[in-house]
Design a protein around this nucleic acid. Structure first.
Lengths: 139, 139
DNA sequence: AATGCTACCGCAACTTAGTTGCGAAATGAC
DNA sequence: GTCATTTCGCAACTAAGTTGCGGTAGCATT
């Protein structure tokens, strides 16, 4: 698994540092999205807050992770699995936030539908976020 | 127009105060959504930040305005036009943020499509936010 | 393996955003 | 007008995010 981490970093022309390895590893070992706070906690107080901010920013720029919008004021991040490249994200899946357990999922298999916008409106990107009860909590 | 403001407040069992009138008026006279910061500025430094926070919170609870999620870390608010009631929002329209002018629109006439979720996932609410160029900026 | 260049990290200090408690003031029922 | 209740504004606080800069780690070269 360290191999995969190294691989991803190198593929994106990033130098392989301790913080990047550790944070990327977190994303690989979690199902669902991570908020900034989660990362700070799970990283085990080893990293400076600033490092976490900068690492996440770098990962987003390189297309390694993407941002998930939420109505509460928290930003969440999740791994890109769709060959996103530097400066261009191609994730077009639906996101789902469970109101019971709080986990945010990337539903890779559910695609964002076509939406007919009014005349003159041109969309570059469309985000769909569903909120409700996830399969774990619904039984 | 003050009549409409009074009306909306009374209909929601809210006492009619200066701050509520002024802030609600802002929403009635703007096309598009307002961020917290916009409101503080447009209100003309007359109100305390805390009052703005509390008023917005009250309006959201009462179903007068709704929150629009964004990928940048800013929360935006817009008027509900769909008979939202206390504790239950019924807005199911698509939101559009223009990357040129920065305005966020409620596209009332564009409804959120049906989305088939995986087994076990139950959605209470689905948000759709498009980003791109609006009709004003596209010409 | 040592060298040196570059990029990254961590600290400190700062700005901005949002919350809480409480006394004073405004609202609305009587 | 009086009074109970709600709301407002201040102050003080916590949390979130940013910036600059010296020191350190990564890595290419030899």
């Amino acid at each position: 698994m360290t191999a995969e981490v190294n691989d991803i970093l190198k593929r994106n022309n990033l130098s392989v540092t301790e913080s990047r390895k550790k944070i990327l590893n977190l994303f690989l070992n979690v199902n669902g999205a991570l908020a900034h706070g989660d990362i700070e906690k799970k990283a085990g107080e080893k990293f400076d807050r600033v490092t976490v901010y900068r690492t996440l920013q770098t990962f987003v720029e390189k297309g390694i992770i993407h941002i998930i919008p939420t109505t509460d004021n928290s930003v969440r991040y999740a791994l890109c699995k769709n060959n996103c490249t530097e400066g261009h994200h191609r994730d077009n899946h639906v996101h789902f936030t469970c109101l019971q357990c709080g986990i945010t999922y990337c539903l890779e298999e559910v695609h964002v539908p076509e939406i007919r916008l009014p005349k003159g409106f041109l969309a570059n990107e469309i985000e769909v976020v569903a909120k409700g009860t996830c399969s774990n909590c619904s039984q």
